[in-house]
Design a protein around this nucleic acid. Structure first.
Lengths: 96, 96
DNA sequence: ATATTTGGTTTATATTATAAACTTAATTAT
DNA sequence: ATAATTAAGTTTATAATATAAACCAAATAT
């Protein structure tokens, strides 16, 4: 019937982050913040969750002298995203 | 960029209820409970929220001697659902 | 030198989802 | 007939989640 919606992805901000990372190969904190319009605190927390779930990989480097947090999606992340989309379809394209 | 995901619909159970009501014209509490596999308490709360938002219409009747809570989607509900789907697409079919 | 901005993290709070406990009435079993 | 069970919900307490406010360290501007 309905497939379960992975609660880690079923969150506006985390979904946004994943969506960006699917299309962009790598993105830093500042870019993600701009694109998602999230506050830094919220973004930080959600990046952490995605990272702990193994959906994204986070590398802390420096751009010049400024800290720079780079994120990229992992194969597990891609898979989870695709499954999430499949699950969503059971809600959205429903045959009575 | 990303469209906002209506938080009232961005909930697994409420989305399930709306999805059913879109395809079925009318459904009672017991049916919704079976299809969504929700607990009665949870379903009751979520039906109430959808109803207060004007997305569904709830009528309390009796089937024989047993109480029967009938739900149907409203035009506002249909519209909100469609907008929600459009918003979702900005996350899912994203052109980099 | 001090004030402000940048790039974050931590923590406290508000919101939300969920289940457990309860209610009322109808069945079923004894 | 009455006691126990089930049905159909609702209310309320709790657990989980999201979010922003407060904070920190380093860099830059004044």
């Amino acid at each position: 019937m309905f497939k379960e919606l992975n609660p880690l992805l079923h969150s506006e901000l985390r979904l946004g982050v994943m969506s960006i990372l699917l299309s962009v190969e790598e993105a830093d904190f500042v870019y993600l913040k701009q694109e998602t319009k999230a506050t830094a605190g919220n973004l930080s927390v959600q990046i952490d969750k995605l990272s702990k779930a193994g959906y994204i990989e986070v590398t802390k480097t420096f751009k010049g002298k400024m800290p720079c947090t780079l994120c990229r999606i992992t194969p597990n992340g891609v898979e989870a995203f695709e499954e999430y989309v499949e699950a969503l379809k059971t809600y959205i394209y429903r045959k009575s």
